[in-house]
Design a protein around this nucleic acid. Structure first.
Length: 874
RNA sequence: GCGGAUGUGGCGAAACUGGUAGACGCGCUAGAUUUAGGAUCUAGUGCCGCGAGGCGUGUGGGUUCGAUUCCCUCCAUCCGCACCA
């Protein structure tokens, strides 16, 4: 018996053999410009963490690998690369704790990742590997930042343009002629612009650039010592580490993603991403249409502008609420309210983001003592402040309509303010009634109109009287782009009189992350780069020089997502392309590969990476560098694999399953098949240790199909029978359609069914077993290669043509009809496939079972669906 | 609160345009072979019932000859957003 076992499939030897063969012969290297249609399959590249891969990570890699292999069989030139998102916080936190340089730990982790990935038998073209922390890569991340710096957003042409076109406009016509997305308060004529000195001009331009430096309210995380972008803050704490986050005004680099809000929203319709993911992005962009309306403040010449989506309810506006940070609060506040207002402002500022969120139900606020005039109803209403109104959204002020808005209602109740229903039938006794249609009441000249008609009417009126305008607002904020950390891309920026200048593009090779002795912030509170002794820029020599011998350079680094914005483009160039050192991606390469055809990765990146990388793609497109507007045509979110106990797989619970262990025991093919067999790719599902024995058994059964009882390879050249061809072609049809709709779990069942049937038929024929090997080769490439070579083939199975499906082999001359009585299946009859409807009906009714159910009565009706079913209605 | 996804045997799941619900696999039961099995093979396995039969895809309703599939109601779980005016 032991002898026989040795003749069984030995994955240990065979898997290693083929992994070596693939690598030695560069089987999966993609060639640019090959005379085949291109197809680009990409996985989101991993951050190489210290704990290595667990069994959940490769799920997406295996699925995309199966798809890449399928496309190769179909005659596509497939680009399927991999790399590492190797800048990031964990390596740096580790460095702070241990003094170990992040570059060292990162390198160690990458090595470990590579070993683990190699063992899974993934068909990556490693010659194109990228690492975001590699100077030859991040040089181009810096270069892209420079392009953003030298661009502005022209809302007339609706795209980004070179900053030189903006300067020309200023020189010729001043600021009024420009319709830009900007955050400048300066207004000037052409003459004024031309008379400004260089510094003034540059500081104005800074407020127009796509990458701009400005004092903004940011999420400051004291524990991490850095600012964070909105998507890096979850429920008021940092995504990494869960540390508290405060709101703080700071001078920071930002990217003008808001300029792209509308395009990011609209273009979702042109891509095949899941509805849930599109919804998350839509929600995050948060478009809302409405109007801005000016309310005159009583006894002053000033007015306050509010944003509302419901201008039709303006007669129900019984007070105004300003954000505590609103700039007019101090000016309008009356003497006797001063103390109260100041106390409230202080209270609001002292509340952390977290507290504010937790205490949503508690209504707080203070009266300014000032009044405003409702511009439509002319009624005098009080002005309050409260932190339920956000300074950063809209105008930082609202007209409160307590009859229609629950927050306003709560506020009105607490402070005893008037509530006026403005829509017929509105019940405001227990809360606001936010109905969005109906007839207006208590609304002066608007009374009797419908909500739908009143909205444009009010907007027309305020526009005609110059009291405001129609307005679209987005929740999306510009992305804070600087981090006060070490392990990231340094900015290619130096400062002259506090004005930032970019380093020349041809000098970027000089701007490497400097070595420092300690990775913590400096004593003065500067970022870690403040510790570098050589971090000044000398323009004459074009070198980074000792501090004091040049202009100071930026001390920030870029966020983790800077490299992942554009890495997919870098893979498009061949690994040995000499242009790799001249361009971020060559024109030929982007023209050849175009977009990512299939992008595989987790849904947790919905509002971070997946939004930023669409944004940067659009910028690069606007600037004429790439011929497409969206990075990925189709996207699949693979689900998470939970541990068997239902928890998340993590060190903390001690429930982590390492793919290395699974491979050592069952082999890579079994791991691949099992991960797919767990369920649909996009679902979350628990790992199932026992279940792997099923697919492992399948592999041995497949192997035995090609071997005789003694374990010798035994495939004959005889003609296949009808039954054998049917088993094969059923499998071809099923697996092909499964592949096309990424149903990788059901194709595993199809393989099992085919192998079970062919084993039963004792089929040992090349005509059947050769195509079968190709069918399973995407899922289980090692055993398939071995069988393929035993069949006498010299080339890798990966380039074999996908078998053709022939429907003729599936045609039956006998069909088993299920016969149901009143919709319940009672028996089945075998009938000739050629029979007519009437003949089928006759045969079914004649059956003794049918007679039994009819009890001598005539059937009311008989439904016959040819080749499917018979239903007798009694 | 808003938006989305998912609910099918003991378990993972399948059923693609409405047509034999539970394919395939795990587990379990019985048996064969074996010194032994955590190997292999055979048969069985949704629930209730001795049986005829009845019940059954989260709940309740509807459309249909026929519903896991289409429509409405409600419930549960998970994910995202959350004072966005």
């Amino acid at each position: 018996m032991r002898l026989l076992q040795n003749m069984e499939y030995d994955f240990r030897i065979i898997e290693e053999r083929w992994q070596h063969f693939w690598q030695a012969n560069q089987i999966f290297k993609a060639n640019n410009g090959a005379d085949l249609p291109p197809f680009y399959v990409l996985d989101m590249f991993p951050y190489p963490s210290g704990s290595g891969l667990h069994v959940g990570h490769p799920l997406g890699y295996i699925a995309s690998d199966i798809y890449a292999r399928f496309k190769r069989h179909q005659g596509f030139n497939v680009l399927h690369p991999m790399g590492y998102d190797s800048y990031g916080l964990p390596a740096e936190q580790y460095a702070i704790e241990t003094g170990q340089h992040p570059a060292v730990t990162t390198e160690t982790n990458i090595k470990r990742y590579r070993e683990q990935l190699d063992k899974i038998g993934l068909s990556f073209d490693w010659s194109r590997e990228v690492k975001t922390s590699d100077p030859i890569f991040y040089k181009w991340t810096q270069w892209i930042f420079i392009q953003l710096f030298h661009s502005w957003y022209n809302q007339d042409s609706d795209k980004a343009e070179a900053i030189s076109t903006l300067i020309k406009k200023f020189e010729q016509s001043g600021s009024a002629a420009v319709n830009a997305h900007h955050n400048s308060e300066a207004e000037f004529s052409a003459e004024e612009w031309n008379s400004f000195d260089k510094f003034t001009q540059r500081s104005i331009l800074l407020d127009y650039r796509l990458a701009y430096r400005a004092e903004t309210v940011v999420n400051w995380c004291p524990a991490l010592g850095t600012v964070l972008a909105n998507d890096e803050v979850i429920n008021g704490v940092s995504e990494r580490g869960g540390h508290p986050v405060e709101q703080k005004k700071m001078m920071q680099w930002s990217l003008r993603i808001r300029a792209y809000a509308e395009r990011l929203l609209n273009d979702l319709e042109s891509i095949e991403w899941t509805d849930s993911l599109k919804d998350i992005q839509r929600n995050w962009i948060g478009k809302s249409e409405g109007a801005e309306i000016d309310f005159k403040i009583v006894d002053t010449g000033d007015s306050v502008r509010v944003f509302t989506t419901r201008p039709d309810t303006i007669y129900g506006a019984t007070f105004i609420v300003l954000a505590p940070e609103h700039p007019v609060v101090n000016e309008i506040c009356t003497e006797d309210q001063k103390e109260e207002i100041e106390a409230y402002i202080q209270f609001a500022a002292g509340r952390s983001e977290r507290e504010r969120m937790a205490e949503v139900k508690d209504v707080t606020g203070a009266f300014t003592g000032a009044y405003a005039i409702n511009p439509i109803s002319k009624v005098k209403i009080p002005i309050w402040i409260s932190d339920y109104v956000l300074a950063g959204y809209g105008t930082g002020a609202v007209m409160a309509v307590p009859s229609g808005d629950q927050r306003d209602w709560d506020f009105a109740k607490k402070f005893n303010l008037e509530i006026i229903p403005v829509i017929k039938g509105q019940d405001v006794s227990n809360g606001a009634d936010d109905r969005k249609d109906g007839e207006l009441i208590n609304s002066g000249e608007l009374s009797g109109m419908t909500v739908k008609d009143a909205i444009p009417k009010v907007i027309d009126k305020i526009e005609a009287e110059n009291l405001g305008e129609k307005r679209i607002n987005y929740k999306l904020r510009d992305a804070v782009f600087s981090r006060q950390r070490y392990w990231g891309e340094p900015f290619p920026i130096y400062y002259k009189d506090d004005i930032p200048y970019t380093i020349d593009e041809d000098k970027l090779d000089e701007i490497k992350l400097p070595e420092i002795d300690n990775f913590k912030p400096t004593k003065q509170g500067e970022p870690p780069l403040g510790r570098a002794t050589h971090w000044n820029w000398n323009n004459e020599s074009g070198k980074v020089v000792e501090n004091g011998k040049g202009y100071p350079m930026d001390l920030n680094t870029m966020p983790g997502w800077a490299g992942s914005n554009w890495y997919f483009l870098r893979y498009m160039m061949e690994g040995n392309d000499p242009k790799r050192s001249d361009v971020f991606v060559s024109e030929e390469a982007v023209k050849y590969w175009r977009q990512i055809d299939l992008y595989m990765g987790g849904a947790e990146h919905a509002t971070g990476h997946l939004l930023y990388f669409r944004f940067i793609t659009k910028v690069l497109h606007d600037l004429g560098y790439i011929p497409f507007n969206e990075p990925a045509k189709k996207l699949i979110n693979q689900g998470m694999i939970q541990a068997e106990d239902g928890h998340k797989m993590s060190k903390r619970y001690g429930n982590v399953i390492n793919p290395d262990d699974v491979i050592a025991e069952f082999g890579a093919d079994a791991l691949r098949l099992h991960e797919m067999f767990l369920g649909p790719i996009e679902m979350h599902k628990p790992w199932n240790t026992k279940g792997i024995e099923g697919v492992s058994k399948f592999i041995r059964k497949l192997w035995r199909l090609y071997h005789d009882k003694n374990g010798s390879f035994s495939v004959k050249e005889e003609k296949a029978t009808k039954a054998e061809l049917k088993a094969l072609h059923k499998c071809i049809e099923k697996v092909t359609s499964d592949m096309e709709r990424s149903s990788f779990n059901t194709s595993v069942s199809a393989f099992m069914i085919a192998v079970n049937e062919l084993s039963e038929l004792n089929c040992k024929k090349r005509e059947i077993l050769e195509p079968l090997a190709i069918l399973v080769s995407c899922h289980a490439p090692h055993v398939a290669e071995e069988l393929w070579s035993l069949l006498g083939n010299k080339e890798s199975i990966s380039s074999a043509e996908w078998p053709n499906f022939n429907a003729e082999y599936l045609v039956d001359d006998q069909i088993t009809y299920p016969v149901s009585v009143n919709g319940k299946t009672r028996f089945s009859i075998e009938l000739n496939a050629e029979l007519s409807k009437a003949e089928i009906e006759q045969a079914a009714l004649a059956h003794e079972e049918a007679q039994k159910w009819l009890e001598g009565k005539a059937p009311k009706r008989v439904i016959v669906v040819p080749k499917r079913i018979v239903n007798i209605v009694v």
